[in-house]
Design a protein around this nucleic acid. Structure first.
Lengths: 354, 354
DNA sequence: CTGTTAGCGCATTCAA
DNA sequence: TTGAATGCGCTAACAG
């Protein structure tokens, strides 16, 4: 591996000349430039990123904090954040480090202090996030995919859950639905102050109230089975129910199946709307109406926010709270009163599966 | 940010003494050690990782090459690789860089040459992978999650697809099934030499042949809808079919639904077995029998293989081809001839969804 | 047991 | 337009 001084020697110039030829930070005659690049080609020279970082005091490395794998199971959308951020960061000439750390861990700060990493992208932040506080106090650059309660001076991108749930309720209300069920996050997540859980819950309740509808909320773990169980129970307990709002992609298939097994047709007898990525909206035989969760955009913007901060392109913190677009597919329609059925024809499937 | 020389000054010792106190590479008296650590604490000293890397010529950074997001949609298992590798790498004191690059791109090599990254983990390798060839020729450390055709001298971890499909067929054969369908990868993937696609296909065909059964193969894109369509078509075209083998988690729900909609009960009338992660096996109302795809293990081992190579713990390349365990759940049972139904009661759902 | 010194590969300041 | 020299923060001989 050739070094810069090797190149300099071979081109018959000084080390600094080579450096400047590379960076273009001072004028170099065509002739010497030619010789230098020739020498670089001959030697198959590659600048040493680490050495450059040490001299520049810029590592061009940022890190994305992955939520701990044990707690919440990773949703489709989460991975999309990661993939999208990775791609964006790379396009902007930076490198993305993937860190796994318990949400409360502060050893993150060490690595920042070390100068190893120039900035951080956080996801799955809670309303009162210690990490955010710590970063803010020390003035380290970071961006959020998500929001806290107090976001003063923070760059972030998040879904506008308030708007999303409001739109969802409004859409259903417009179709004449009077009693709407929200299949939501696990209650513990609400208690722990997880933003999406709290905000969507609040917004649903207020929207339902404003429109004079009745709303029923039930939360559960992010698995199809739990979604199924919850929906099934709700359908029995609440005969007036004619629509579900689902906010987790993992719940969708379970909820749909519960509705089917109750003998209800979608959308004739029952409507379902999801606040999820369009990609997750296409069940085998049902395209679900969604408020499009823009996961890829969020990953991209989260990355851009951080890097613009680092390059000085953006001085002021920017906040993007994205309002999701409504895409009407086949799962929502005019409300019809349900017949008095709690479970029906499809129900045997479950018992039959010994 | 305090530097090592600051610490040295404050402790009244030489720079190198501080360095050695930190690394423990030479004996230091208790007294000076105490003073040094005291000074470090006073100054809130953090060693500068980049500088250390430059001096050591070891960055303690490895990279994981993410498959390009456009081509294959990312499966559950893929993300599990990433998350698991990230965690493992971190536990071993290294950092994981996420790279997105087209599979044919060789600019990867530049970064290795630069000394920025010490090694690579590749996933989604094809049987004849140019990247692997290039890495091998230049002697760069890397490990594979997956396999090529020729794996001489390469460290890798992969699922034993041969064994998996053989087990799947054997399990079904043992239950009396005579005609088995394989819902598999998109044909283009087989043609392009994608390992899992090719190996599972081959193995299925040979297993079926060996046991004197008849096997039908159909491949499609990795979405529930495509899985549904393919299964549906097969059920109509092949009345003798009594079981499906599914090798992509994304297909599972679609295939199951197609079977249900054909009026068949699982497992009484029809059996389904998946070569997928247990986590994906639990549909809302059906726990599917699987050959457990050990995605987390594979991510972990892939990372370990690379890092052991870097630390010199492993001189010889190691290859782990994991045989999946069979977990019998509710979706497989004794074979019964199907009645002459091609489509049935559930079929209306599809049409009804306008 | 401890101090001195010379790099690691590059950016950059100061001269020329 | 170019060269020489200094230093980024640390490790690792080499002395003592």
């Amino acid at each position: 591996m050739a070094t810069m001084s090797d190149v300099a020697k071979r081109a018959g110039v000084a080390l600094s000349t080579v450096s400047h030829a590379l960076s273009g930070k001072r004028p170099i005659s065509e002739e010497t430039k030619r010789r230098i690049f020739q020498a670089m080609a001959d030697l198959d020279y590659q600048p040493h990123a680490l050495a450059r970082s040490l001299a520049t005091r810029h590592s061009r490395i940022v890190a994305l904090l992955l939520p701990p794998s044990n707690s919440t199971t990773l949703l489709e959308s989460q991975f999309t954040f990661v993939a999208s951020a990775a791609e964006t960061v790379r396009q902007m000439g930076y490198n993305l480090l993937l860190w796994t750390a318990p949400a409360h861990d502060l050893e993150i700060l060490q690595m920042l202090q070390q100068g190893f990493v120039e900035g951080l992208i956080l996801m799955e932040v809670s309303l009162h996030d210690v990490r955010v506080e710590a970063l803010k106090v020390r003035g380290y650059p970071f961006s959020l995919i998500g929001r806290c309660e107090d976001n003063d001076g923070i760059s972030l991108v998040d879904l506008d859950f308030e708007d999303a749930l409001q739109q969802a309720v409004a859409h259903l209300a417009g179709l004449g639905h009077q009693t709407i069920g929200l299949v939501s996050h696990f209650p513990a997540l609400v208690d722990s102050g997880y933003g999406p859980a709290v905000r969507s819950l609040r917004s649903f309740q207020s929207a339902v109230k404003t429109l004079g509808l009745s709303g029923i909320v039930r939360g559960c773990q992010a698995t199809p089975q739990d979604g199924y169980e919850v929906a099934r129970a709700l359908l029995v307990e609440q005969p007036a129910l004619t629509a579900f709002i689902v906010v987790l992609d993992a719940h969708l298939s379970g909820v749909v199946q519960a509705v089917w097994e109750a003998g209800l047709h979608i959308p004739e007898d029952f409507s379902i709307i999801g606040v999820i990525a369009p990609r997750s909206a296409h069940l085998p035989t049902l395209a679900v109406t969604t408020l499009d969760f823009p996961a890829a955009d969020m990953g991209r913007i989260g990355a851009e926010l951080l890097i613009k901060q680092l390059t000085g392109e953006a001085i002021q913190p920017q906040q993007f709270v994205l309002r999701p677009a409504l895409t009407v597919r086949q799962s929502t329609g005019p409300a019809h009163k349900r017949e008095g059925i709690g479970s029906a024809k499809g129900g045997d499937r479950r018992e039959s599966a010994t």
